[in-house]
């Protein structure tokens, strides 16, 4: 292992990617909480959010090649995030409306949801590939990316800072929403026992929609943040989607704070694992850790017994 500088640099890299995993993982965990259903099309919501933010920025960035600075830069990032979140939210709503609700109405078996999700996912990313092209597309430079601060020898760039700050804000907001608001109370009620919640006057259908849209908003904004670093492409959702799902399971699926913990942990494990061994072993190491954790704690790090599905 290298010096203290490298250790902190790897930690910063890992936390940054981990924060993105956490943001996406929330979408899986929230939906799983209320429906006990893995929304496998969530990765496409993430991808569509990235394109939403990208197109908004591309429309607004001045074409003279100059990199925006100051307030203009901050404004553009905000526009990208909002557009990404809006696209993600809209995609998640459509997904729920078209791929899940009809099945739920008919009381379809669990397996049907899974197939429907995979179908929706294939549909969405192939459509995106056709419409947006098969090449990777970069988000235009929204700010000059330079080292802003040095923490224990780790250089933190503007971009990492933007990603970390946004992700942190979103995670805190969701945590507050689920733990302290009336809406959060109804989400938790539906998660515990949908039937009882319904009898107590909770609009279960509305809660389900809101949960999907909430996950979509997060994934969309997360997609935009991801695309700022790694470019957007029609297949971009797959790997981060799997990783975020892993993070959600690692932390204990259905648990909001668990998803955050799982995401950050996975990011760190990947970062250090890729450095210590070989970058190609990154996924091997990450999944070995997952299996190891699940052997000891089958319900994930912060997982608890789950309620009955809606």
């Amino acid at each position: 292992m290298g010096s203290a500088e490298q250790i902190s640099q790897l930690a910063v890299d890992g936390l940054m990617v981990g924060a993105l995993y956490a943001v996406i993982a929330l979408g899986y965990t929230l939906v799983y909480g209320v429906l006990q259903l893995i929304n496998f099309a969530h990765s496409e919501v993430f991808m569509l959010g990235a394109f939403g933010g990208l197109f908004a920025c591309r429309a607004l960035v001045p074409g003279d090649g100059a990199t925006p600075a100051g307030l203009a830069a901050a404004g553009l990032v905000l526009v990208g995030l909002v557009a990404g979140a809006a696209a993600g939210g809209a995609a998640a709503y459509t997904l729920e409306r078209c791929a899940y609700r009809p099945l739920r109405r008919r009381g379809a078996p669990r397996l049907a949801y899974l197939i429907s999700a995979i179908g929706a996912s294939l549909f969405a990313f192939n459509l995106a590939g056709k419409e947006f092209g098969r090449q990777s597309v970069p988000v235009p430079d929204l700010f000059a990316n330079r080292t802003v601060v040095t923490v224990l020898g780790a250089e933190i760039s503007t971009q990492s800072l933007v990603i970390a700050a946004t992700a942190l804000l979103m995670l805190l907001a969701v945590d507050h929403l689920v733990a302290d608001t009336r809406l959060g109370l109804s989400i938790r009620a539906v998660a515990q026992d949908a039937e009882c919640a319904g009898l107590m006057g909770v609009d279960v259908q509305r809660v389900i929609v809101v949960t999907f849209v909430l996950g979509g908003l997060l994934a969309g904004a997360g997609g935009f943040l991801y695309a700022m670093t790694f470019n957007a492409s029609y297949t971009m959702g797959f790997v981060p989607g799997i990783k975020a799902f892993t993070a959600a399971v690692l932390g204990g699926i259905g648990n909001v704070r668990g998803a955050v913990l799982g995401g950050l942990l996975l990011g760190l494990v990947e970062s250090f694992g890729g450095y210590l061994f070989d970058a190609s072993y990154k996924n091997v190491i990450a999944f070995t850790v997952l299996v190891g954790v699940l052997l000891v704690r089958p319900s994930g790090l912060l997982g608890t017994r789950l309620g009955r599905p809606a």
């Binding site: 890299d13 990617v17 670093t229 790694f230 970062s271």
Partner: peptide, 11 residues
Amino acid sequence: PTKDYTSQATK
């Protein structure tokens, strides 16, 4: 081939 070259860059 991957998307995330961050830790590779650190290396």
